Simulated assay, not measured.
Amino acid sequence: MSETSLQSAADLSRAQQGDDAAFSRLIAPLHRELHAHCYRMLGSSHDADDALQDALLRAWKAIARFEGRSTLRSWLYTVATRTCLDLVEKRGKRALPMDLSPSSDHAVLVDPPLTEIAWLGPYSVSDLPTGPAAHYEQREAVELAFVAALQHLPGNQRAALLLFEVLGFSAAEIASMMDTSTASVNSALQRARRIVADKVPPVSQQQTIRELGNDRIQELVASYATALEQGDADLLVALLTEDVTWSMPPLGHWYSGITAVMDFATEVPLTRCPSWHHLVTTANGQPAVACYLGMSAESEHNAWSINVLTIRDGKISAVTSFIGAEHFPLFGLPATY
């Protein structure tokens, strides 16, 4: 047994005797991937925080009864999944604007936030582990299209798909984790795959980023930020695909197609917003731009939105602007710039 394994075994024994420091050491290597699992299940970083805190409290209370029939990792995923399923039942699914209504043809100048809707939120993945071999890469499995598609699944299908396709557990293991039969798990997987396949593009953002290369991605992101800061409509339109979409949760209206998107862009961010500053970041494994709005170029600019960019064929095919200063701490970004 390796030195690391010996230390883990010793920490498990101590944790089962009530040593909370030993328990913290046990879960530390798995904390980040468990949090990502909770985000995929719930579609919100803040809900993932709550779910993981609750799951780890449950695990701490039950650790003395852990008999080692499965790995500690499998046991913790069981606790986390069941905790998330409880929250899914209570809180329902999260949405993007396109899930709720048709797109708008022209800019909507008065668009109050829909606070009664549970909106999908962005996610920081800078230190996600690679994890075991599975159908979806860890970063692919937090891309916006995939997480949004998951929200269309019932909780049991969502959990089965993630545990099998992303985390590499077998159908028999998942049946044990979810207290059901292997046949039920296979049935849930079959239904979930059909729905997700209809909603997720065949080429992931991770594959697109690898094919384009970092230099081209950085050039696209910098040009997008420059277009907004300088109010340059010609530069912006040159960056977008013909079927581009732009959505801005918690605002309900969204735009589809270059004509509608540019009508919105020229009416609102390019002309009616006094001044923009930007910081480049990443969200959901995709290039993103943190937008700061100010009353003039010289004034203090306040956190406004995290704009997640979806890339296809070397251009921007979707802009998802998560409006709200509450998103910025997730990415270690300042409130003003």
Rank of each mutant, 00 (worst) to 15 (best):
E326H: 07
P249L: 02
F23K: 00
A192Y: 09
G68W: 11
I63N: 03
F164K: 03
R139L: 15
S184F: 05
M98R: 07
T266P: 12
A233M: 03
Q207T: 10
S317F: 01
T259Y: 09
L333D: 10
L333F: 03
N186M: 12
Q205P: 03
F66N: 05
L251G: 09
S184E: 11
Q7E: 14
W304S: 15
G332V: 00
E211K: 08
A15Q: 00
Q230E: 07
G324E: 13
A265S: 05
A288R: 04
S103N: 07
R193H: 08
L161I: 04
Q286H: 09
V88W: 06
S70D: 11
C38K: 01
L87P: 02
V261H: 00
E267Q: 08
T259L: 14
A148R: 01
L228C: 06
N307K: 04
D54I: 06
G294V: 06
H278S: 03
R58F: 06
E300L: 14
D234G: 07
Q7V: 01
I311D: 10
L30Q: 03
I174P: 00
V88L: 15
L150T: 02
D50R: 10
E137V: 04
H35M: 02
D47I: 05
Q286V: 09
Q138L: 12
F264A: 06
Q218V: 04
L56V: 00
T282S: 08
G121D: 13
T71K: 14
A297G: 08
Q138D: 05
S247T: 07
E89Y: 10
P154W: 10
L150R: 00
Y136D: 00
R91W: 04
D54L: 09
A48W: 01
S317A: 13
S126E: 13
V110T: 13
D179I: 05
W246T: 10
D313E: 10
S247W: 04
S247G: 11
D11F: 04
A222K: 12
A233R: 03
S176N: 05
R158Q: 10
P132F: 10
P154L: 15
W304E: 03
N307S: 03
A265P: 06
I306V: 04
T83W: 01
L251N: 14
V125A: 13
S181G: 11
F146D: 01
M1L: 15
A9Y: 15
S305T: 11
G18A: 09
